[in-house]
């Protein structure tokens, strides 16, 4: 949640603002760089912010919750890979949302896309646990 929120927000919100009043996006697009590179740059900077947020939250969460099954230094590589791939994915989603959504409807993004993703995306319960709820 921290990674996804950070990555999506850091790309989508400024982008909505850029497309809106200030038209800042036009300055960027007029820069002597291919538009694809500008999009790539947005994704990279959003992904970096996502990783920063996750790296900030992880030790605090471990501190608050105490020892957690399956969380060990041995899994460092896997955790890192998931963080990087996840933040790239969410930052790309944020780029898409930021361009699709019109300025005043940014609030809708959280109500209609982010909130269902958090609740029904099996973030707080295991996917396999749904099987027991089927009767």
């Amino acid at each position: 949640m921290s990674l996804a929120l950070a990555a999506v927000q850091s790309v989508a919100l400024p982008l909505v603002a850029d497309f809106g009043w200030t038209k800042e996006i036009e300055d960027r697009l007029l820069a002597p760089v291919a538009s694809q590179l500008i999009a790539l740059e947005k994704i990279i900077s959003g992904a970096v912010q996502g990783v920063i947020a996750a790296v900030f939250v992880l030790p605090l969460a471990r501190l608050i919750m105490g020892p957690i099954d399956g969380l060990a230094l041995a899994h460092f590589g896997e955790i890192g890979a998931i963080l990087i791939l996840g933040s790239i994915a969410f930052s790309a989603i944020g780029l898409y949302l930021g361009t699709v959504i019109e300025g005043p409807q940014v609030g809708l993004m959280f109500g209609l896309i982010i909130a269902p993703m958090i609740m029904f995306g099996c973030a707080y319960y295991p996917w396999s646990g749904l099987d027991t709820c089927r009767r």
Binding site: S2, A54, V57, I68, L71
Partner: peptide, 13 residues
């Protein structure tokens, strides 16, 4: 108690 192991992957990414 084991719920924290299911919660952390949700809170983090």
């Amino acid at each position: 108690r084991g719920y924290t192991a299911a919660l952390l992957p949700g809170v983090l990414p």
